[in-house]
Each structure stands twice: as structure tokens, then as C-alpha cells.
């Protein structure tokens, strides 16, 4: 996708709420560039092994996120573990803003849940 002038991006809020898989993918990429399988492993590790993305499901979301300009392909490089050359993906600055907006939305929701005593306030 050719880079667009900044003013062409819509306001991050118009893309909310994100689908939960999208949120997960963006969150994982926020921690650093990942290749496809790395994203799966990261999600697996952060969901107690419950969310097991297969390739098709993952790339389907990646294609959408990419077409909306939230993520992009990073320069290829060698994997730290087996040193194989792989395709890496990274968050765009716009993607970062959308993810942050989504998190703010979620935090507001969590606060509401606390104030309505659905859950106890977290310690952190």
C-alpha cells in the first residue's frame, strides 16, 4: 500500500471498537516486530494457551489491518531462534494511535464495571 498523506488517515476513533483478534494482534506487535508465527505464539502465551490462531485466521485479519493502514511489512530479517529469514510485520504510527484509542475505550469500560461493582478494582 502506498503511503498516504497524514491528513488522509481517518480519526482513530472511527475504527473503534476493534475486533478482539485485531486488538490482540496489534498489542503483540506493539511490543516489537513479529513474524506471523511469532504473533501466534505471543497470543498463545498471553491467553493461557486458550487462543490458538491458525494461519488463515491470522492472515485474514492481517490483510484487513494492513489495508486500513494499521500495520505494515517490516524489512525481512533472520529469526533469533533458528536464524531463518522471515517476513516481519510491525505497527504503523497510525496503528499505534488506534490501539491506544481502543485501550482507552476499554479502560473506560473497565472503570464502569468497577463502579457498578461488577468486578473489584485491580491492584495494579
Amino acid at each position: 500500500m502506498p503511503p498516504m498523506p497524514k491528513s488522509a488517515w481517518p480519526a482513530p476513533e472511527t475504527l473503534l471498537p476493534l475486533k478482539s483478534v485485531d486488538t490482540l494482534i496489534l498489542t503483540m506487535l506493539a511490543a516489537g516486530d513479529r513474524h506471523g508465527y511469532g504473533i501466534r505464539q505471543d497470543i498463545l502465551a498471553h491467553s493461557d494457551g486458550k487462543i490458538e490462531l491458525e494461519a488463515g485466521n491470522l492472515y485474514r485479519h492481517m490483510r484487513r489491518l494492513e489495508s486500513k493502514g494499521l500495520i505494515e511489512e517490516a524489512p525481512q530479517r533472520h529469526d533469533a531462534v533458528d536464524d531463518e529469514r522471515r517476513i516481519y510485520h510491525r505497527l504503523t504510527p497510525f496503528g499505534h494511535r488506534v490501539l491506544a484509542a481502543e485501550m482507552l475505550r476499554l479502560r473506560a469500560l473497565v472503570r464502569l464495571a468497577v463502579s457498578r461493582q461488577i468486578i473489584a478494582p485491580g491492584r495494579a
Partner: peptide, 17 residues
């Protein structure tokens, strides 16, 4: 189109999987 863009990544993913 999809294959051209993501085919390699898909194959890498499957090998790892």
C-alpha cells in the same frame, strides 16, 4: 492477489506450526 501478498508468510507459518 492474496497469495502474492501473504503466500510466503503463510508457508513459513505452516512450517513453524
Amino acid at each position: 492477489d492474496f497469495r502474492a501478498r501473504y503466500g510466503v508468510g503463510l508457508a513459513q507459518f505452516h512450517r513453524d506450526r
